[in-house]
Design a protein around this nucleic acid. Structure first.
Length: 411
RNA sequence: CGGGGUAUGGUGUAACGGCUAACAUGUUCGCUUUGGGAGCGAGAGAUUCUGGGUUCGAAUCCCAGUACCCCGACCA
């Protein structure tokens, strides 16, 4: 894409009401626009990053048998009464509204009830099980206080997957597979080294749930990490009993602030009992289906990445989720740049060409701020030296390489 | 939801209760310039958040509302 055609532009200063580093950088670099507290618009650059994160999630969910679908965000009150979660005293962050005729509606903050109810129509036999529908969708939560930029909004993206299994054994097998799939997602997004499988409070059907917590000061949770075993304990269940149960010792645990980028949860038959979501077993008798739910916040992942990978000049995206792979900067070499741009695109390289009539200093500053992994400069100077200048965003030095070398580097 | 704070061109800031609300940046036009946010000149851009009050006079003081930010609580 030609940068002159991007409608977003960079800003030297962040709006003063934005304190979170992720939001400051994303706004300054033109990735997002803040509509109101806790609600951000993803501009073309930001949407590209988000789409890449979603696509990684999609691939990993599909790889373990997930089926993508899309549920309505409008919630029927009747569906939420059986589990008592319509009650404002139980769930206090509903966005509720009503139809013209006065019928009450909710905007989805999650979908367990909805999908348990839906499945009463489709789940009949044990032969159908197990299966794993998921969606990547907007969720709404009327948070008392939005904060941390795009990491905790009132409207936010969520990948929510639900598992339906015949029994605990079948459920546990998938639960463990999901752990690995989640690990793959966070590794691919570049935050694997900072992300820990974290034991958190379970529910009536399991001792623990598992969270994926990424170490960052911008996070809201406190966890205790055991680096050797690559696991952590959430502060909320940090007791002598739990430490012992996990075979750890207090001395081996390091306290850290972290952001919850994903969680997986065994639900047992809590929701299927409430909605009579049953299947007919091999004996011909009805049985409640065993459920699990599995969430990832793609925008929270994006915010966390920015928190982790930036310097005083701007963002430094991990390769896999960068909006573009190559940032091509031309200085008084439009013709040569145009040819290189065409060549890169031909080779399937995602390239942003800064073709603007701007001074070099501004282009460099913008490039650092936007944070595309590979920077190419083409100018009379580099042409005379026999090629282009190449620099990684994460490295301080640039060097001249030939176009052929460049193509093998980035293709 | 409790406590605290802030609100002035698009953005960041300034202005003792007293002149036509100032500066930087961005933006438009012209000339010059081209390897780390260039220079000169000329323009456009504000009902100082809203409503009330005090005062001869309010961006400035007071009250209410709204929005935003921070701390805490909440986060099924």
């Amino acid at each position: 894409m030609k940068q002159s055609q991007l409608f977003t532009k960079t800003q030297q200063e962040a709006p003063k009401d934005e304190v979170a580093k992720n939001a400051q950088l994303l706004i300054r670099a033109g990735y997002v626009y803040k509509e109101m507290a806790g609600a951000y618009t993803f501009l073309p650059l930001g949407w590209r990053v988000l789409q890449k994160i979603k696509e990684i999630i999609r691939e990993e969910m599909n790889a373990i048998g997930g089926h993508e679908m899309h549920m309505t965000a409008l919630q029927d009150k009747a569906t939420w009464v059986p589990t008592n979660r319509w009650d404002d005293a139980v769930v206090d962050n509903w966005f509720k509204t009503e139809l013209k005729n006065g019928t009450e509606l909710g905007l989805a903050f999650t979908h367990e009830e909805d999908i348990a109810h839906l499945m009463t129509q489709y789940l009949t036999s044990y032969k159908q099980l197990p299966f794993y529908p998921y969606q990547i969708q907007l969720k709404f939560r009327n948070e008392a206080r939005a904060k941390s930029g795009i990491m905790r909004g009132r409207e936010f993206f969520m990948k929510d997957m639900y598992s339906f299994s015949k029994n605990e054994e079948e459920h546990n097998y998938f639960y463990e597979k999901t752990k690995q799939a989640y690990t793959n997602v966070f590794n691919r997004c570049g935050i694997g080294d900072y992300t820990y499988l974290t034991f958190a409070s379970g529910g009536s059907f399991s001792k623990y749930s598992h969270e994926f917590q990424t170490i960052t000061d911008a996070g809201e949770d406190v966890i205790y990490i055991n680096k050797e075993k690559d696991i952590a304990i959430n502060e909320e269940v940090y007791t002598d009993e739990v430490i012992q149960d996990l075979g750890l010792s207090k001395e081996s645990l390091i306290k850290a602030k972290a952001a919850e980028v994903g969680n997986i949860f065994s639900l047992g038959t809590k929701f299927s009992d409430a909605h009579e979501t049953t299947f007919t077993n091999e004996e011909g008798k009805p049985e409640s289906v065993v459920m699990g739910s599995y969430g990832i916040g793609p925008a929270r992942v994006m915010g966390t990445v920015v928190e982790l990978f930036s310097d005083e000049n701007g963002i430094a995206w991990p390769e896999a989720i960068a909006p573009f792979s190559v940032h091509l900067i031309s200085i008084n070499a439009d013709e040569q740049a145009e040819a290189l741009y065409a060549k890169l695109q031909e080779d399937g390289v995602e390239v942003l060409w800064d073709d603007r009539d701007a001074r070099p200093g501004q282009k460099f500053a913008d490039s650092d701020l936007i944070g595309i992994p590979h920077r190419i400069v083409i100018s009379p100077k580099t042409i005379e030296a026999g090629g282009v200048e190449y620099k990684k965003r994460t490295e301080p030095d640039a060097n001249i390489i030939s176009v052929e070398e460049l193509l093998t580097l980035v293709s």
